[in-house]
């Protein structure tokens, strides 16, 4: 008799996972890269397109962060610190999720998909291969949109910024999001009790990949040949 009861509990868990519902609604649409058709293809053009796209994505992602339950209650300084630490992880996770349906290609935007050859031309082969390693991990797991939105919020809350003023408030935010992930997995994947843990265990590779990306774009910035918008520059400098 325990089984049907468990099932009822399971269904109510799904219905009650308000955090997931809020995050699904808050999830921004993809934006277009719109590479300039009048400029001939080159590494500079590819990087200019990506930096412009990243700048616009960042504006959208800051708007998204404000919808995470509990995030707006943090002090402005702590909101800034979390975003300054996690912004690249958030950008990369969105590219990863968009790329799950393709083989060895990264969907930076609906109109900007990079294959191996394009990655090589842009000098991004190593970086893109690391991002593809993440894509592969999530493909194997069959990452769902609900899990993706939770994981992205967890990456933000768990960004290990050294500048946090109210660490207890940030811990509470982490607990809420972690709890939502556990509840979701208990309800949706009772056959795999370790699924939440498996998802959390992808975060070190995300952190490592983001650090590599920031380092790469910092050296591109120093090189000075690729124009970059202010928000992107501001966040690169925060690292």
């Amino acid at each position: 008799n325990a089984l049907p009861q468990k099932k009822i509990l399971t269904v109510s868990h799904v219905l009650e996972n308000k955090v997931v519902s809020v995050l699904l609604v808050a999830e921004p649409e993809g934006i277009f890269a719109m590479p300039d058709p009048t400029v001939p293809e080159s590494d500079i053009k590819a990087l200019t397109t990506l930096c412009d796209l990243a700048d616009r994505e960042l504006v959208v992602n800051i708007g998204w962060a404000k919808h995470i339950p509990g995030f707006p209650s943090l002090s402005l300084a702590d909101q800034m610190s979390l975003l300054q630490s996690a912004w690249m992880e958030i950008l990369i996770l969105r590219v990863v999720f968009r790329s799950l349906g393709l083989e060895d290609k990264l969907v930076y935007a609906e109109d900007y998909v990079m294959d191996e050859e394009q990655s090589r031309l842009a000098g991004l082969l190593d970086l893109n291969n690391t991002i593809l390693q993440l894509v592969k991990k999530f493909k194997v797991m069959g990452l769902e949109k609900e899990e993706f939105v939770l994981l992205k919020a967890i990456a933000l809350a768990n960004s290990d910024s050294m500048q946090i003023e109210d660490t207890e408030a940030v811990q509470r935010l982490q607990d809420v999001l972690h709890g939502a992930l556990q509840d979701y997995e208990t309800a949706r994947h009772p056959e795999d009790p370790r699924r939440a843990g498996k998802l959390i265990m992808t975060l070190p590779l995300l952190r490592q990949t983001a650090a590599r990306a920031v380092q790469h774009f910092c050296s591109i910035k120093q090189d000075g040949r690729v124009p970059m918008h202010k928000l992107f520059l501001e966040l690169l400098e925060a690292k």
Binding site: V60, I62, G63, M80, L83, K230, E234, A238
Partner: peptide
């Protein structure tokens, strides 16, 4: 904080990102 003016503004601003 002065160094991170745009992030600060975007977080304080209540308009949606599309309006900026």
């Amino acid at each position: 904080k002065e160094k991170h003016k745009i992030l600060h503004q975007l977080l304080q601003n209540n308009t949606s990102p599309g309006d900026l």
